[in-house]
Structures are given as C-alpha cells and as structure tokens.
Amino acid sequence: MTANSSESIDWIARAGARPKGRRPAYFDDPAVDRLLSLSMALVAEVSVLRERLDTVERLLEAKGGLNRAEIEAYMPDRAAGEERGEATRAFIARVMRGFAQEVEAMANPDPPIMDLVEKLSRE
C-alpha cells in the first residue's frame, strides 16, 4: 500500500501539524531552535538516502536489475537488517561526534591549552 489516497485532506500539509501545547525554547535565540530542527531533519534524510542506496545495491546484486516497486517492498532479512542497523549506528556516531565528545570532555576534563603552553615553556 504505497499509493497516496486521501481525498479531502492535504496530507503533506497536515502531516507537519503542530501539537497543542507551547513548545519549550531550548536556546536563547529562537533561530538556533529552528536551525537544529532543520539540521536534524536533513540528517534523517541523509540516513534515509543511504538506506535506500543500500536497498538498490542489494537488489541489483541479487537480481541484476530492479524496479521501484521492489525497492518500496524490500524487507531486509536478519543478516541484512543487522548490517544496515550497524551502518545507521555508525552514521549517527559520525554526525553526532561533537555531542559525544562533549560528554567525554565532561567525564575527563582538560585544562585550558594556555595552561599547558605556559607549563611546557617553563618545564
């Protein structure tokens, strides 16, 4: 069931409806909130594209050709599911590196680099 059939509603517009309830402001500048939403949506779409490319590769490898209905209906088996899951995990680890390293830095904080510059110039 991949056809789009919804009479009387604009499904694209309604899909992005806002939930009732004031949204918390996470940053002092609202532009940062908007930019984070934009970035994460793009990150998601890159992940989706990578997964789609993986599907195309697997179908081509297995059958030597493909049609789009096969792409839409593709269901990875256990092994393929795990390979793709690991690829998604690695992708997220790459794009989220800055946040993960911030956590690491809180766990093992370093002094300001100038402290070390001065220390090595003395010792």
Partner: peptide, 18 residues
Amino acid sequence: TNHDEAARFNFLTHLNRY
C-alpha cells in the same frame, strides 16, 4: 510504510537510543 518511511523510523529508533 513505503521504503523511506520505514527508513525514517529506523533512523529515529537509532537516534533515540543514541
């Protein structure tokens, strides 16, 4: 779900865990 809708949920599942 079509291919990409399932893939978006896959991404979000991993993102939530991360």
